[in-house]
């Protein structure tokens, strides 16, 4: 895997996780898998989207780690959804509600260490990572 350096010269790499690889995992296992990769300075690209409760659990566990792991400041998290701009209001509302309740394999979730990624700006057709 190609290594990329941020402005401070810190190396990190991208790690793609197919949906099938996390589909059968429990919430704890999924979150642990993601955070283990983040601590290893990877930017995780997850095929699919975490459920709302999983996102909350990810934040909880991230905060526990910030408290215990030196130099770990937290994460940057973004979900890239399929382009819904062509859809009507009702479709968008139904889609938004459904995806937050059951997760969604058509989205992409990008999670990276906050010490590497300053910000993730989202657009339905592109993402931009701003490095620290």
């Amino acid at each position: 895997m190609k290594k990329i350096k941020d402005k401070k010269g810190k190396e990190f790499s991208l790690q793609v996780i197919p949906f099938a690889e996390v589909e059968e995992l429990t919430i704890s296992e999924r979150v642990k898998k993601i955070l283990d990769l983040i601590l290893a300075n990877k930017i995780v690209i997850l095929h699919g989207r975490l459920r709302a409760e999983e996102e909350a659990r990810l934040i909880e566990d991230t905060m526990a780690l910030v408290d215990h792991v030196e130099q770990f400041k937290g994460i940057e998290l973004a979900v890239i959804e399929p382009d819904m701009r062509e859809k009507g209001f009702i479709d968008r509302m139904k889609y938004g509600l459904a995806k937050s309740l059951v997760g969604d394999s058509s989205s992409l979730t990008i999670i990276g260490p906050a010490s590497v990624i300053k910000d993730i700006k989202k657009d339905p057709k592109k993402i931009e990572l701003f490095f620290s």
């Binding site: 709302a52 909350a56 934040i59 979900v79």
Partner: peptide, 15 residues
Amino acid sequence: PYSQVNLTIIGNLIA
């Protein structure tokens, strides 16, 4: 307003 934290908070309340 379109930040992941806002969406996570609202998503959890909906759930």
